[in-house]
Amino acid sequence: MIGRALALCLLLGATAALAQTVPEPAGFHGEPYRAPVPATLAGAQVITPAEAVALHRQGVPFLDVLPRQKRPDKLPAGTIWNAPPHQTIPGAVWLYDTGYDRISAVEEARLRDGLAQASGGDKAAPIVIFCKSDCWMSWNAGKRAVGMGYTGIRWFPQGVDGWQAVGGTLVTADAP
């Protein structure tokens, strides 16, 4: 228990110290996606792991925006490849590939439809958006959601890493 608490303090302390120096960009953030993120997301509420756990217990919808792992480009022709299972927070809906700086119309529709379903059509309803710690994917998706008029967005910047640091378990996401 003490080890887990220490790991969480180090994770949050390092993330908070770096995030204070990272300004919010005017637009979306591209490569590198795994890099320090801002401490804020205009129009959204930033939540801690403890707040995420409490919202999860209340039944607030969680949206995971990590991308799918794609087939490696250099595999020889005819090689069978299966993507490794994607691990996420229990009950989360996986809206893969919706956190890039530029997304296709299909990916934007996936995000729009996922938000509408999660909110039940109420754009003020709380919705948690996450990926991993120090990952811009959830920041980008949260910014898009705010731009679509959603006012109940809760951005969980520590994502699955913060979830696990406070003792949360992960489950295999439904395959897209």
Score class of each variant (00 low, 15 high):
Arg4Asn: 13
Ala5Thr: 07
Ala5Glu: 14
Ala5Gln: 13
Leu8Glu: 11
Leu10Val: 15
Leu12Ser: 08
Thr15Leu: 08
Ala16Val: 01
Ala16Trp: 03
Ala17Gly: 06
Ala17Asp: 02
Ala19Gln: 06
Gln20Asn: 09
Gln20Asp: 03
Gln20His: 11
Thr21Arg: 15
Val22Phe: 00
Pro25Cys: 07
Pro25Trp: 08
Ala26Tyr: 10
Ala26Pro: 13
Gly27Val: 07
Glu31Ala: 14
Pro32Tyr: 11
Pro36Cys: 06
Val37Ile: 05
Val37Asp: 01
Pro38Val: 09
Thr40Arg: 14
Ala44Lys: 04
Ala44Asn: 09
Thr48Tyr: 07
Ala50Gly: 06
Glu51Met: 07
Ala52Ser: 05
His56Gln: 13
Gln58Asp: 14
Gln58Lys: 15
Val60Phe: 02
Pro61Ala: 08
Phe62Pro: 03
Phe62Ala: 01
Leu63Cys: 07
Asp64Phe: 10
Val65Asp: 00
Pro67Arg: 09
Arg68Tyr: 02
Gln69Phe: 12
Gln69Leu: 14
Lys70Gln: 14
Asp73Ser: 03
Asp73His: 03
Lys74Cys: 01
Ala77Trp: 03
Gly78Phe: 09
Ile80Gly: 09
Ile80Asp: 13
Asn82Ser: 12
Ala83Thr: 07
Pro84Thr: 11
Pro84Tyr: 02
His86Cys: 00
Gln87Leu: 15
Gly91Val: 09
Gly91Lys: 02
Ala92Tyr: 01
Trp94Met: 04
Trp94Glu: 05
Leu95Ile: 11
Leu95Gln: 06
Gly99Lys: 06
Gly99Leu: 12
Tyr100Gln: 13
Tyr100Arg: 14
Ile103Thr: 06
Ala105Pro: 05
Ala105Leu: 10
Val106Pro: 00
Glu107Ser: 01
Arg110Gly: 01
Ala116Ile: 00
Ala118Asn: 00
Ser119Thr: 15
Gly120Leu: 08
Gly121Glu: 12
Gly121Ala: 09
Gly121Ser: 10
Ala124Cys: 06
Pro126Cys: 02
Pro126Arg: 01
Phe130Gly: 05
Ser133Ala: 15
Cys135Leu: 11
Cys135Asp: 15
Ser138Trp: 01
Trp139Arg: 07
Trp139Leu: 10
Asn140Phe: 13
Gly142Ala: 11
Gly142Met: 04
Lys143Thr: 07
Lys143Ile: 08
Lys143Asn: 11
Ala145His: 03
Ala145Pro: 03
Val146Met: 12
Met148Asp: 08
Met148Thr: 10
Met148Val: 11
Met148Pro: 06
Gly152Cys: 05
Trp155Ile: 07
Pro157His: 00
Gly159Trp: 08
Gly159Ser: 11
Gly162Cys: 10
Gln164Ser: 10
Ala165His: 04
Val166Gln: 04
Val166Glu: 06
Thr169Asp: 12
Thr169Ile: 13
Leu170His: 06
Ala173Met: 03
Ala173Cys: 08
Asp174Arg: 13
Asp174Leu: 12
Ala175Arg: 14
Ala175Gln: 12
Pro176Gln: 08
